[in-house]
Design a protein around this nucleic acid. Structure first.
Lengths: 199, 199
DNA sequence: CGCCGAGTTGAACTGAATCAAGAAACGTGG
DNA sequence: CCACGTTTCTTGATTCAGTTCAACTCGGCG
């Protein structure tokens, strides 16, 4: 699908009352960008200056802690990615956004976003809904990490994103689940053994 | 200080371009509420229907996990508290908001908030800034819990909120830091011993 | 005075991390 | 299409930070 149309579909859902004129204005501050697998979209030390709609491909958000990389989020097609804290605060990030596949992004920079906001309530509302949505998903992830066991977290992730196992290496999923690759491997072994018994 | 004036000061800071007329409208959807120490402002099973400015006192946000209570947040005077996920999604919460001291809240219900939003861009922006702020603080807390050691988390908390140790029992701080009361006690012991050596 | 919740301390336990070694899968160039 | 090097994944042995469990102290308060 054309990346701009994918974006339009996304926004019509988020904001059903958007007129053609609004959309036109919205579109005027967007830029399409193609990135290769392995390319870093954002790197430590930079201020994240864009929010990027992933029209095609897959992006991950990760950082280093004590020499090990920790994956904080996966963003497949039809979702937004950004180091939003850095974007909002205009302070340098410590984190990476990396294309895990050749991807097509539709990007809006900080200035463009401000010009949307100054255009009126519709776009302010859009920004509010985005921030609220981010807050809700972060809360959910938080509570999962804090209260569930590694095995439960694995099962939850597997239910929600089975396709991810075809698209990203297990060690990235492990760090996303807050465990080491070794532990993930053992969880998976236990589960397949259980499955065998039941058959 | 008068609770309404405290709230006004808060909003003038958040939103310098607010006119007297805007403020008047804003105030018209607020209700002052006094709660006693130990009172539950929100309980599991309820939909959280308010965002509450704590004009005086102290509120904590907590939940139960495997029979143990986990403190997720402290909200002292001059900050906003709510089970905002439940408030936004209109779904029942699993969590508690509890007054840890006799407190004065200035509350706004869901309907009131919607009427603010429908009034225009200024209030939409306010809602956006609130959600963005919540997102940023949750991100920060998240990354602290994921990447720092218990001792570092303790030190960080102690630097940021030394007064809290006078206002809440240690076992609540322990669960806020993601550790047991026993572990907190040992950390504190280690630190005071270190302090002795240096003197 | 005696109770009770909060905090401390010690001993034993445990789940996951770490360390180390291989095996399997992957992709890149010949 | 195969060979080789690299990356990813698995498995086992060991370690360790923090939990659990249990006993005890302390301080406030009826």
């Amino acid at each position: 699908m054309d990346p701009i149309n994918a974006l339009k579909a996304y926004y019509q859902q988020l904001n059903p009352s958007m007129t053609e004129e609004d959309w036109h204005f919205f579109q005027s501050v967007q830029r399409v960008r193609r990135v290769k697998k392995g390319e870093m979209i954002v790197k430590p030390g930079e201020v994240c200056n864009h929010v990027s709609f992933v029209a095609e491909g897959l992006v991950r958000y990760f950082y280093f802690n004590e020499g090990k990389e920790i994956t904080a989020d996966f963003c497949p097609e039809n979702c937004y990615t950004s180091e939003y804290c850095s974007f909002l605060t205009r302070r340098p990030t410590m984190d990476y956004l990396e294309a895990l596949e050749d991807s097509i992004l539709v990007e809006m920079d900080y200035e463009g976003m401000q010009s949307l906001y100054s255009r009126g309530a519709l776009f302010e509302r859009m920004g509010r809904l985005i921030a609220e949505g981010l807050f809700i998903s972060l809360s959910t992830r938080n509570s999962t990490l804090m209260t569930k066991s590694p095995e439960d977290r694995y099962n939850e992730f597997f239910e929600a994103h089975p396709q991810m196992f075809q698209r990203v290496p297990l060690y990235m999923i492990a760090s996303y689940l807050g465990i080491t690759p070794e532990t993930l491997s053992r969880i998976r072994k236990r589960l397949t053994e259980k499955a065998k018994q039941n058959s």
